[in-house]
Amino acid sequence: MKPAPFKYVAASSLDHALTLKAEHGDEARFLAGGQSLIPAMNFRLARPAVVIDINGLDELAGIAHGPTIRVGALTRYCALERDSEFLDSCPLFADALPHIAHPQIRNRGTIGGNLSHADPASELPALAVAMEAQMRLKSAGGERRLAASEFFEGSLTTGLAADEMLVEVEFPALPPRSGACFMEVSRRRGDFAIAGLATIVTLDAEGRCTKVRLALCGVGETPVDASEAAAPLVGHACADRPIEAAAAAIRAAIEPAGNVHASADYQRHLAGVLAQRAIRTAYQRAANAA
């Protein structure tokens, strides 16, 4: 299990990296944390002709706080974990980060690498969708923004063009009286989710839901935005019937395929279980936040 040959270039600037990418297109891959790319190269499932190492590009790393929280693509999981202000403003991350592999992986892996890899069983794509993140994509020719819900096109496929890099992710701050919760079931801690669910519930002053965002991982070809299925919650305080109705709608809305660890039926069942548990917790957290 050794990588096929390639040409390695340590990019000296973002422009340098983008110029190289424009030149080599799909033949080139950006190397960030490498925690998905290098295993794929070791298995020879990925055989880029050119590897553009962007680890030296400090301008791509870091978290800018504000009404919109902007996270540079090269920000590593361990940096997210250690930034308490970030975890306060993006509480789904506080729930989800411990589920992402193990400390050794979190010391290298980056948010941009994870989202660009677009593994549907991974946690962060679901978080990005639930949080209505905006992805900032850059190429030598310009820059554009793409909503997370449009960014993920399929399993391991995104809206990134061959010459583009995901450079930053923008997370809108949660509205007041919001509570968030991410939960997942995996066989072992750190494994990809058999089913995972991120939700944000926003309440009015009376504790009734005014808005719900909900996305799942591990149960489809992309992170699944099930916010519409969760809409029965709107107008309701935390109560069994609306939550059960939402969970039933979510179960119906997804099309899990099953995998070596779980039957499709079990995944669907779990989605319902997680929906009930996570929505309740989110309600509670929203109430506490008020």
């Binding site: 390695y8 340590a10 590897v51 190492d53 680890n55 361990c78 050794q104 290298r108």
Partner: peptide
């Protein structure tokens, strides 16, 4: 340990 932090040495290139 890479600069003091544990990492997987099989998931890094020597050149990095």
């Amino acid at each position: 340990l890479l600069d003091g932090a544990p990492i997987r040495s099989c998931l890094m290139l020597a050149v990095q």
